[in-house]
Amino acid sequence: MTAMTMAGAINRGMRAAMERDPKVLLMGEDIGQLGGVFRVTDGLWKDFGPDRVMDTPLAESGIVGTAIGMAMRGYRPVIEIQFDGFIFPAFDQITTQLAKMHYRSRGLINLPVVIRVPFAGHIGAVEHHSESPEALFAHTPGLRIVSPATPQDAYDMIQQAIASPDPYLFFEPKARYWDKAEVDEARVATQLSGEHGASAATAELSRGRVAREGKDVTLVAYGPTVRLAMQVADVAASEGRSIEVVDLRSISPLDSATVVRSAKRTGRVVIVHEAPTAFGTGAELAARVMEQAFFHLHAPVLRVGGFSTPYPGSKFEHDYLPNLDRVLDAVDRVMTH
């Protein structure tokens, strides 16, 4: 076990992937000598050189589009999009090209491209630097979408995504980059060196986890809101309420089975994410819980998330984003329904 921040865990995970497979290369803006604006690629340019840690022209569509061409020749590009709000110039390449090539080639072409996106808020940033666009991509078949909440998951999941034959959007909760925890480096290395390592990795990446067991309310979160959900569970416990926290980890596929299993036990579900609730991950999950656990529910499924406004100035983000009070309020409402 080694103590790592989440940023450090992603850095070490990419290093391990690059050492394991010479076809893995990094592409992005300022990821070379500078080490990325969040320093997630720190030191990799020095050790692997500019051919494997490529500072690209400042054009997101160009980065994703050329990565597709390189992947067609067997490379495994790992792209850094500098900030969530800068991904949209690449939206066409991601949703129209990257997502569909395997399908339109009837399985002849695999595109193992990973797009890392530092996302979500709580860093006091200017406009376009705090967004949560995951649902826009989850609506597109052909993409896999994951988001780690802990350094251990960050370390494992980045390597699993790189090893998987499918394209990934890898949403990194940037406000959690500096969270520190002990990380076991051996387990994922063993998994990926196994005969069907990539399949096992993809299957594991598709599953959520129960982060804390409880019996009164199922609180579902992913990425940046998992820590908040754990805090809510602590506070609720002091008020005599037992909260089960599910960390989804994957948004596409969405591990609704884990949530439904929990919902059947607790009968109450609250979903928390930073993205606007309208047409979001929570809406999809609420529909599935209703379809599969309707007669077990004691209260309507509630969502807590961003409002239907553009991301406001950072002085307002603590109210715009789900916070302890707003989530506790939702817990109260499902308990007293």
Binding site: H102, Y103, S105, R106, G107, N110, P141, G142, R144, S164, P165, D166, A198, S199, T202, A203, S206, S252, P253, L254, D255, A257
Partner: peptide
């Protein structure tokens, strides 16, 4: 067929 290279639950 061939939406993904590996199985996807949806």
């Amino acid at each position: 067929d061939h939406v993904y290279a590996e199985p996807h639950t949806a």
